[in-house]
Design a protein around this nucleic acid. Sequence first.
DNA 1: GGCGCCACGTAGCCAAGGCTACACTTTATT
DNA 2: AATAAAGTGTAGCCTTGGCTACGTGGCGCC
Lengths: 141, 141
Amino acid sequence: MSQRQTFSDRHRRTRSDHAQETASDYVEAVDDIRIEHGRCRVTDLAKRFDVSHVTVTKVVARLKREGLITSEPYGPLELTEAGRQLAAKSRRTHQIVYDFLRAIGVSEQIAAIDTEGIEHHVSRQTLECFRRLTEELRGRG
Amino acid sequence: MSQRQTFSDRHRRTRSDHAQETASDYVEAVDDIRIEHGRCRVTDLAKRFDVSHVTVTKVVARLKREGLITSEPYGPLELTEAGRQLAAKSRRTHQIVYDFLRAIGVSEQIAAIDTEGIEHHVSRQTLECFRRLTEELRGRG
DNA sequence: GGCGCCACGTAGCCAAGGCTACACTTTATT
DNA sequence: AATAAAGTGTAGCCTTGGCTACGTGGCGCC
């Protein structure tokens, strides 16, 4: 195996899948907003992500095609079973990363920001290391 | 400050700037390849990132517009001063993140992959926490 | 010199995720 | 009920970063 091929492998995994990240962010937000407000509308997502409602409509259209979200015209957004599962998984990952950053001394605000960026890029193994270390550091006080 | 606005701030910073990530990856790669091979050509980048040479040409064209890279037709790619600085900064960040992941127990291969994904999303503060903890963990053996 | 191969450039296509402008539906207010 | 306001949809445009297909430049090897 050449060194060059190794590089390719790494980059292939990191550069792609932005669509998947967006999907995770969206279903997690839909879930959040439904818990907070009882229902989630396009505008709620537009406010949360600070984009136009048109952008939300487009992304939601894709997520409908992919079977994560359902909705009727002018109606609130609902998660499918697959959507709920993805949301739950995203939430768990998010929490582990956030708790970890806080445990190693990152401030609340910065941890919130960095978690958003990092959460989509940690493998299962790294996530497990994060969790273990979080407990360890908490144990030490 | 409303909770909603806080969410917007976070997401604005995390979702955008993929172009900036690409820029960092490219200048770092150009620097690497120049060190390894003496010069960097379009094809070298295409191999490293496992994309077509056309994609590289397009991205490089953008980076030229942005003043990070220069080259003459059919000639090798050169970094501008700004390009070299960005490459150096990217390399430092990359190293800190990689060393950190290794220090907390992530395997070489997984650390290499996750570093690629994480490095563009860690703030200065988090990076400093990473570095401190890396030293601490190494000190403990 | 000519041939072939590799590198590079260009044209033209695609999806994702941004936007504005405008039309329509739903809901709230008077 | 009528009107205003808020929410949603649609059309059409942009940039980034993917691609294939095809034409051109540069260089080594007969």
